[in-house]
């Protein structure tokens, strides 16, 4: 559960730094999940499925690019539209193609990292995953590096904080934001694909189950610090798997209480440290070259 959250959370963080609040994340994940599932079923390859998921996610994000960045439409409204539409379209396509057979994918194999995966308690959780999980780590490191030491990262931050200043300095806020949103779409698509292909092994309507919204929360909380996204994702992943663990051991802790824990923790952390919270100044503000 943590892996797709990392993919989508990093993606959302990139959009947000560029000044685009992407509420359509859940929709992009769903579209990615369906595209990936269809691809993986027909060619029997998880890797190709993940790639197709990313591409379908990117294609979905073009809707946001066209409407919110080019036509300056309200980002929250379009984000909700993308999420609702994706939920509907994927459910319809699923019923049109798979409702008679309900195909499943074979269980994805895991890659045990020698020695490390044998560490008691932590080993299995951290070092025994489908190899694509390590791509998520790679995505985090790459995003961190881009923001820390490249001009692209600087451009993205400028597009989110002072788009007009970026334009005055010779940059192009619209194309910077476009690039950022398309990257988000790709990562969200891969995240959704991961849920369908590796987590569930099948596609059902709304298979992402609100993961996109949790990823939005994570990204906003992390405020650009990518390490925080990973920590938060692992925290939520652990508490979700705790519920099954408790059930297996037969400990009678109400599942619902366990599921509330990560959010309560987040709220406590927020009220203790979040007072000087920072979000990009031009977040969710369309960039219009003619205003100002």
């Amino acid at each position: 559960m943590a892996v797709p959250l990392v993919f989508a959370g990093v993606g959302e963080a990139i959009s947000e730094r560029a000044g685009v609040l992407n509420v359509g994340l859940e929709g992009m994940m769903l579209m990615g999940a369906f595209g990936a599932f269809a691809a993986a079923i027909s060619v029997d390859s998880i890797w190709l499925g993940l790639l197709v998921g990313g591409l379908v996610g990117t294609a979905t994000s073009l809707l946001m690019v066209g409407l919110c960045i080019r036509l300056n439409a309200n980002q929250i409204v379009i984000g909700i539209a993308i999420t609702l539409g994706a939920e509907g379209v994927t459910a319809l396509l699923h019923s049109a193609n798979y409702s008679d057979t309900y195909p499943r994918l074979p269980k994805a194999g895991v890659l045990d990292i020698p020695l490390l995966s044998k560490i008691p308690v932590l080993g299995e959780g951290l070092f025994s995953h489908h190899p694509s999980a390590y791509l998520a780590v790679l995505a985090v490191v790459a995003a961190w590096w881009v923001f820390k030491s490249t001009g692209i990262g600087l451009n993205i931050k400028a597009a989110g904080d002072q788009p007009h200043a970026l334009a005055a300095a010779g940059g192009n806020p619209r194309s910077t934001r476009t690039m950022a949103v398309m990257t988000t779409g790709f990562l969200a698509g891969v995240g959704g694909a991961h849920i369908a292909l590796i987590g569930a092994g099948l596609f059902v309507p709304a298979v992402t189950h609100g993961a996109g919204f949790i990823a939005i929360v994570l990204a906003m909380l992390a405020r650009g610090r990518f390490g925080w996204i990973v920590t938060g994702a692992i925290l939520i992943g652990i508490s979700l798997s705790l519920t099954t663990a408790f059930q297996l051991v037969g400990v009678d802790v109400p599942i619902d209480a366990v599921q509330m824990l990560p959010f309560i923790m987040i709220l406590v952390v927020l009220s203790a440290f979040g007072r000087d919270s920072y979000l990009p100044a031009a977040l969710a503000v369309p960039y219009d070259p003619e205003s100002r």
């Binding site: 539209a81 993308i82 609702l84 539409g85 994706a86 939920e87 509907g88 379209v89 459910a91 319809l92 699923h94 019923s95 409702s99 309507p205």
Partner: peptide, 10 residues
């Protein structure tokens, strides 16, 4: 499936 309405709203 009963999802067509969502597509319309979107």
């Amino acid at each position: 499936p009963n999802y067509f309405v969502l597509v319309m709203v979107a």
